[in-house]
C-alpha cells in the first residue's frame, strides 16, 4: 500500500547500514581464508610449489656464490619464484568466483543484503592476503637457503610484487567471470606458467625475438619492477607502462563481466 510506504521507510535501517553493505566483512573474510587453507589444491599450488621450485632451481652453490646486483643469484631466483607464487595465489583467488557462480553461491548471496561489490572486494582482499602468505613462505625458505639480499631491498621487492599482483587478482576475476568452467584454474595454472616463462620470470631474457615478445607479456613489467631493488638499476619506463596497461585491461574486463553477471535479465 502506498500510504504505508513512508512509515515503513522510517522504521527500516538506511540502505548503507545494512550488514551486507559494509565493505569489510570480518566473518566472510575469516571463512574465506579458512576455505583456502582447507583446499589442498590451493595450498599446494600457492604455498608449497613456489618454494619447492625455488629449492629445485635456486640453491646450487654456484648461484649462492654468484652475485646479482645487490644480492646473489639465489636471491634473484627467490624473488622471481616469490612473485610467481603470489601471481598464482592472487589469480586463483580471483578466479574462485567461477566455481562459486557454477555452484549457485552468487545467486544465494543475492538473496541476502550482501552487495555484489562487497563480494568482489572480499574476494580481492582474500586473494591478496593469500598472495602475501605465498611470498612469505618462499622468502623464508630462501632466507634459510642462502639467499643474500639486504632486508630493506628484500622488503621493497616483496611490497612491489605484492601491490603489483593485484593486477593478477583482477586477471583472475576477469577470467573467473569469463570462463564458464567449474575448475578454471586447470586452464589458468598452465596459462600462468607460460606467461611466466614468456615474461622472463623464470630465466633472464637474452635479446632476440623472445625478448621482444616478452615485453608485451603481463608478467614482464611486474617482474622488472619487482627485481628493481635487487638488481639496483631503475626499471625501464616500459615496465611501468606494461603493468599499468595490463592492470587497466584486466580491471576493466573484470568490471565489465561483473556488471553483466549482476545485471538482472
Amino acid at each position: 500500500m502506498s500510504i504505508s510506504a513512508p512509515t515503513l521507510t522510517a522504521t527500516r535501517p538506511a540502505a548503507g547500514t545494512r550488514p551486507g553493505a559494509r565493505l569489510i566483512q570480518p566473518v566472510y573474510l575469516r571463512t574465506e581464508l579458512r576455505r583456502l587453507l582447507r583446499n589442498r589444491r590451493s595450498v599446494i599450488i600457492s604455498l608449497i610449489m613456489p618454494p619447492g621450485l625455488f629449492l629445485l632451481f635456486g640453491t646450487a652453490s654456484a648461484y649462492r656464490a654468484q652475485s646479482a646486483g645487490h644480492g646473489n643469484v639465489t636471491a634473484y631466483i627467490m624473488i622471481s619464484m616469490a612473485l610467481y607464487g603470489t601471481l598464482l595465489a592472487t589469480t586463483s583467488g580471483g578466479a574462485s568466483v567461477s566455481v562459486e557462480r557454477a555452484q549457485g553461491w552468487s545467486r544465494q548471496l543475492r538473496l541476502t543484503s550482501l552487495r555484489p561489490a562487497v563480494y568482489v572486494v572480499t574476494k580481492v582482499i582474500v586473494a591478496m592476503v593469500f598472495g602475501l602468505a605465498s611470498m612469505a613462505v618462499t622468502v623464508l625458505v630462501g632466507w634459510w637457503s642462502g639467499a643474500q639480499l639486504g632486508v630493506l631491498r628484500l622488503v621493497a621487492c616483496v611490497l612491489i610484487a605484492w601491490v603489483g599482483s593485484s593486477v593478477f587478482a583482477a586477471f583472475g576475476l576477469f577470467m573467473g567471470y569469463l570462463l564458464p568452467s567449474e575448475n578454471v584454474m586447470q586452464i589458468l595454472g598452465p596459462a600462468l606458467a607460460v606467461l611466466a616463462f614468456a615474461g622472463g620470470l623464470f630465466m633472464p631474457l637474452d635479446g632476440g625475438v623472445f625478448a621482444t615478445v616478452a615485453h608485451f607479456m603481463p608478467t614482464y613489467g611486474l617482474a622488472e619492477l619487482t627485481r628493481g631493488p635487487l638488481v639496483g638499476s631503475a626499471p625501464s619506463v616500459w615496465a611501468y607502462v606494461n603493468v599499468v596497461v595490463w592492470g587497466v585491461v584486466f580491471a576493466a574486463g573484470a568490471a565489465w563481466r561483473f556488471r553483466r553477471d549482476t545485471a538482472r535479465v
Binding site: 540502505a15 551486507g20 555452484q103 553461491w105 538473496l111
Partner: peptide
C-alpha cells in the same frame, strides 16, 4: 530482500 523480509529456498545449488 535487503531487509530480510522475504527469503527463499532455491531449487538447487546455492551452497559452498
Amino acid at each position: 530482500i535487503a531487509d530480510g523480509r522475504i527469503a527463499a529456498v532455491l531449487q538447487t545449488g546455492g551452497l559452498l
